[in-house]
Amino acid sequence: MEKTGIKVINDESSAEAVAKLRAMDEAGNVTWDLVDVVAADAIRLCDEGLAMEIDHDEVLAKAPDGTPASKDFGDLIVSQCFIPQIVYSTTFGYRTDLVGDKKPTSVCAVFDTKTWPGKRSLEKRPINNMEWALICDGVAKDEVYDVLATPEGQERALKKLDTIKDDVIWWSAGADTPQLLADGEIVMGSTYNGRLFSVIEEQKQPVAMLWDAQVFDLDGWIVPAGLSPERKARVMDYLKFATDTQRLADQAKYISYGPARKSSAPLVGKHADLGIDMAPHMPTDPNNAKNTFLYNYEFWADYRDDIDAKFQAWLAK
């Protein structure tokens, strides 16, 4: 997480980085040069004035064909402080040997404990779960956030989640669901797609992906505000290198997360050790991305505190 840029994707420390950075800033002594965070945290850090705003075209390398960086990243630049690296998704995996003959095809299988009995795992936070609950309660996809903005809609989502509350194991670290799946403690569970990839392809467990209603999210860099000019220059140098088209494409050799640059997509090759084609495992592959969400950053920035309070109160009941 420090300047060498060890990539801890979806690590818990991302959430803690926000708090730590705020403490450092309060002390006026920021020791980090570059922080790897998820997009939602980048937005919060930007809001708190803890991350530096960046001119993407000036700082970042152009695509090989000369397209400026801001075009190449496109609307993945969700905050002026954020330099996206990868696109990942939160989606479901299920035990092929425990679900019976009928394989689940829709996210609503999670809520159908009659057809697919057994425990499920969901993340211990409202984000994503509320959306899935509403969809499976019959809300049209493009109305989900309108419904969720109302107290009745929130109530409705929690009520839907209530139907499976006794069957849910709540996770808070990305490694939990893969572990639970491998142990056979759950039949299906949500987690990051890259984690499922390693369970399926690297550990060869009887697990399959359920790409339906996967939620895209982004992971990338922010530069803390208030760096000295020398440090800033060094960081920018590194950023320019680390986020160019080839580097982003290379990341996909190790884990099935999509590169954030459009120009990187054709360069995605085979897995470094397994030698399998990575493209079909990307969340953005057309076969996988039939029904997708993009994490609604603005909505959750506003409603996070409110809905989280309700969600935690519901959990504690």
Partner: peptide
């Protein structure tokens, strides 16, 4: 949680 996640 309020110290490290919600920042409240």
């Amino acid at each position: 949680y309020h110290i490290s996640s919600s920042l409240n």
